[in-house]
Design a protein around this nucleic acid. Structure first.
Lengths: 342, 342
DNA sequence: ATTTAGCACTCATTACATTTGAGTGCTAAC
DNA sequence: GTTAGCACTCAAATGTAATGAGTGCTAAAT
């Protein structure tokens, strides 16, 4: 579709705009190394590229700016691998060299580094529930009416929930129940818990535990895991460093979106394996139609279980971000897999 | 110090400025109800008030704006009680009418309502550790090397921490240890745990538990509670609605500060009982020298255990905020106290 | 002795005109 | 096919004047 020279010029324009944030003129391009053409020639090509929809002109006497379509072509066809410098590489390696405690902590730190290295906003989605298996259930009564239900998984995740006890339940009953649960449900994946609770445990409970029905409801309730606290956000304010977002009105909607913890997960869009780039208008949410989101998944034993993402202006350093994201996702996958196989 | 008329005028100026965000001129004041003086008289008084440091003039031909000292006088001497309308009152009452589950949830919801009602940023500090007493300790081994230590308090708070086990420790040993801990430390306030651990448990452990020293260290570690996750922030972006913060540079520092979870607690300054108002320059942190913070404490059985606060522009609706804060703090205290006495 | 009307003065803001210059599109020559 | 050359466009910068909200001061009114 595009001639080699058009590709060359488009590439030069996008590269330049990414770094300058100013509309790019024909003279600027013609003076670049690797371009042996006069500004007039560039102008002609630019006019063609605009007609084809790859470029836009803010106004007649201004330079050109890449359109969403232009960025898309750039990302799909023109981008060249980015080389990280030693400092950056060092930081990344350090992350994975640390002794793992909570995996959540690694995730949090990943978001931190990601945002710091790219100067964009980092969003990380903690590993999916799928591979968490039940290690232990505990119910600790606090008083006559309330207790805390605690669920520990083999991955070190701990969920807890305050529950109301059916009135008049006796401590022995609870103990009996917990014993049944721990015996029957150990090593069961969390997402199966609910189902198994009814299939296998209900009968057993009816025989041994008083008020089993109420307890069942309560248990079911306490095993429902919150989605919101799996999302980690870092560097939300970084967007304000971008010259095109020096206006409060432009930033406000974005930051308001990022402030809503329950909305964050939607930034990832449909769960996808591997790298996804969503550019400007391609985004569903209105608030970020001036932004691009790059996401990728990390996996456990080859199965994707979580996501890492970067939110920045459409004028984003795609190449660098993609490199860093790929590196981090690979590292996370490896760490998670090796940790899990123990 | 100030004459009645000066107070009247200062009050009118601050009130007006709070709502208009524009420097207030003498004519505006003279036309107000309750002021029977010509603009010339007002001008004279204004000049005096400026000389005394209560007012400032952005430039010669502009109206007057309250100085920090002016706001301070206003808050300390002029403010009149704010009446909440039925809608607002309803919302507040609803909060406390709900059945309590996690107290943390109430706190979170408090922050939400606070921010929504005032249109400023709300910060709430969860109840202090002081009155949490140990209910139960549990150590769940995950594999040969790691375990999760879980601490449940009588208030329903659950802390957990991933710990590394000393190599070669046997499950029985852990069980023994947990039994000792639960027997000896039940009902001990959390803040005493560390001390009691050494005083009472060390001896017992030495006798019964292998590798007690390593375990002791690990326990100590896991009982240290994180400060950061006690702070709840809502409506951070609200500041961008204020006309004087329509500039990204002015907002950036503030939002960056609010983004740092570990810094949030410093916004409350020294822990104080009752209502505190810190106006503009009075704030320690540079980032918020253009802001005011109003905080108050809520208590359990008369003892202050947590704080609620509002961050807004110096040009803040002090009266309304103070009313709402007092109301909420009282409600929280009552709820917390009655809940705890069960 | 206050209060206020009156007036000259200040200065940010707005509107409008002018200049500047980066950039374009087109045409004709290379 | 490429490029030099030139007329043209238009945002941004600069300059100038008009506007008006607000002040401070003085002298008259209360």
């Amino acid at each position: 579709m595009l001639s080699d020279r058009q590709r060359l010029i488009l590439n030069a324009i996008v590269d330049n705009y990414i770094h300058s944030a100013e509309p790019v003129g024909s003279r600027t391009i013609s003076k670049k190394d690797g371009i042996g053409f006069s500004s007039a020639t560039i102008r002609n090509e630019m006019a063609d590229l605009e007609e084809l929809g790859y470029l836009e002109q803010p106004h007649t006497s201004a330079g050109r700016v890449p359109s969403t379509k232009g960025y898309r072509f750039y990302v799909d066809n023109l981008i060249q691998p980015h080389l990280l410098n030693d400092l950056e590489l060092g930081k990344l390696k350090q992350l994975f060299a640390e002794r793992i405690h909570h995996f959540e902590q690694v995730i949090e730190y990943t978001a931190q580094i990601l945002s710091h290295m790219t100067n964009y906003t980092a969003i990380v989605l903690g590993p999916e529930i799928f591979e968490h298996r039940l290690k232990h259930i505990q119910i600790v009564p606090l008083n006559e009416e309330q207790a805390v239900a605690i669920v520990v998984t083999n991955t070190g995740r701990v969920e807890n929930k305050l529950i109301d006890l059916p009135s008049g339940v006796r401590p022995q009953e609870i103990e009996k129940l917990v014993n049944i649960l721990n015996t029957k449900l150990s090593e069961v994946p969390l997402w199966q818990l609910r189902q198994r609770l009814y299939q296998e445990i209900a009968g057993e409970m009816r025989r041994h535990v008083e008020q089993y029905e109420e307890m069942l409801h309560i248990l079911e309730d306490s095993l429902t895991q919150e989605e919101t606290d799996r999302v980690y956000l870092r560097g939300a304010t970084k967007i304000m460093n971008q010259p095109e977002f020096r206006d409060v009105n432009k930033v406000k909607d974005i930051l308001e979106l990022l402030e809503r913890n329950d909305q964050l997960i939607h930034l990832f869009g449909a769960p996808a394996e591997g790298l996804t780039v969503r550019i400007g208008q391609e985004n569903e949410l209105d608030a970020i139609k001036q932004c691009s989101i790059i996401t990728t998944s990390y996996s456990l034993g080859g199965k994707p279980v979580g996501m890492v993402g970067i939110l920045g202006p459409t004028r984003m350093e795609y190449s660098k971000v993609i490199t860093v994201l790929n590196y981090l996702a690979a590292g996370l996958s490896q760490m998670l897999t090796s940790e899990f196989e123990k």
